[in-house]
């Protein structure tokens, strides 16, 4: 499989600065000539480091290796997006790994948020999301609420007004109107149901 491409660990002892320019050169080589030998240098240097970062972040060997693989795949496929003037190879690869981790975690937690790493850190993206017309209904204005409020039966309106506008407790309202507490509660419930119904009809 890997005939002629030695997977040695010799890069581990190289000083960071020299290493950065050396790695930069390899990545550029990968971008320009798809050179597997150059990619092997980058891969051998970063894969174990990525694994140790990923293990700390994900706490799981399988996920850590998935993160290593996804990150290095991106380095291989998108090497042309690396720009040595903007930062070191370490920084670039770190940001790729960070983004993949961010999206992996969201997926693991089953959170289908519309916030993905490409929006936050567009280091590898040139594509923009499709413009899907999201139409949110449930739009009501204060005026409409006021109108709906006016249309409530008088008794319900009095209770709602006392509780929600004057901020009185249900007991206070009961005392004031000399009606049982249970009646205040049921009028409140009925009124809110009615308002809810009107809000839905409004859609």
């Amino acid at each position: 499989m890997l005939v002629g491409i030695p997977l040695d660990q010799s890069n581990n002892t190289v000083k960071p600065k020299e290493c950065a320019s050396e790695m930069s050169a390899y990545i550029v080589e990968v971008a320009e000539t798809r050179c597997k030998r150059s990619f092997a240098k980058v891969f051998n240097y970063f894969a174990p480091r990525l694994r140790s970062y990923a293990l700390k972040q994900m706490g799981n060997e399988a996920l850590a290796m998935e993160l290593v693989q996804d990150t290095m795949s991106n380095v291989w496929q998108k090497a042309h997006l690396f720009n040595a003037e903007k930062g070191s190879p370490s920084t670039w690869i770190f940001t790729i790994a960070r983004n993949i981790r961010f999206d992996m975690l969201r997926k693991l937690q089953n959170r289908k948020e519309d916030v993905c790493s490409d929006d936050l850190w567009p280091i590898l993206c040139e594509q923009t999301a499709d413009a899907n017309e999201a139409s949110l209904d449930q739009q009501v204005t204060l005026e409409q609420i006021g109108y709906m409020f006016e249309s409530l039966p008088v008794k319900q309106k009095a209770v709602i007004e006392a509780i929600y506008i004057d901020g009185k407790s249900q007991q206070e309202v009961a005392d004031e109107l000399t009606i049982p507490l249970g009646t205040v509660k049921s009028r409140t419930r009925l009124a809110l149901q009615r308002l809810k119904g009107m809000l839905h009809d409004n859609d």
Binding site: N12, F46, R49, R51, S52, Y53, S90, T91, F94
Partner: peptide
């Protein structure tokens, strides 16, 4: 990203 400067085995 300096973390990646550390040796890894």
């Amino acid at each position: 990203a300096l973390e990646f400067d550390e040796p890894a085995t």
